[in-house]
């Protein structure tokens, strides 16, 4: 069936099978491979994107469910060459090692800061509790989000 999805501000019209998952629609149909595809069971959180402004695990959302809605992926965080504060925070605080979990961490962190500009480390840990870093770099991930909170006044969004 035909769907029209606004992804990072740009409308895409595609003919898709109902069983196509949103993560594969983004990666395969649109070529937006920044969103990673991990556990496939909504546990690991590498596939988190914003659906109408709310973070969801895109391995457990059908592409047809996004018809007529807005999706924001990690590619939509930066504005041109200006990285989002959460991206700069991950650079400043060494918030990634292998980088596989990073897109999902960034999208959830952005949403957290949009709703709570000054979260405690406990708040950050709770917000990210549905996401796994198999390098176990959680300390630096939490620090990175705190850095973004403290240095994020010029948020690209």
């Amino acid at each position: 069936m035909q769907i029209a999805v606004v992804v990072n501000g740009e409308e895409h019209v595609r003919d898709v099978e109902p069983r196509l998952l949103l993560v594969h629609f983004l990666r395969e149909d649109l070529g937006l491979t920044g969103t990673h595809w991990g556990c496939d069971t909504s546990n690991c959180g590498v596939c988190v994107v914003h659906l109408d402004g709310v973070p969801v695990k895109s391995c457990t959302v059908l592409a047809v469910m996004a018809d007529g809605r807005e999706v924001r992926t990690v590619e939509g965080l930066a504005r041109g060459a200006d990285l989002d504060p959460v991206q700069r925070g991950f650079i400043a605080c060494h918030g990634l090692q292998c980088g596989f979990c990073t897109p999902g961490m960034l999208m959830t962190a952005r949403w957290l800061l949009d709703h709570d500009p000054d979260p405690s480390t406990e708040d950050i840990r709770a917000a990210l509790s549905g996401q796994l870093c198999r390098c176990t770099g959680y300390e630096n991930i939490v620090r990175s989000v705190r850095w973004a909170a403290e240095n994020g006044s010029e948020a690209a969004s």
């Binding site: 709310v54 973070p55 969801v56 695990k57 549905g130």
Partner: peptide
């Protein structure tokens, strides 16, 4: 129940 992202959905 589950985690914050799953609870959104």
């Amino acid at each position: 129940i589950a985690d914050p992202i799953v609870r959104n959905r």
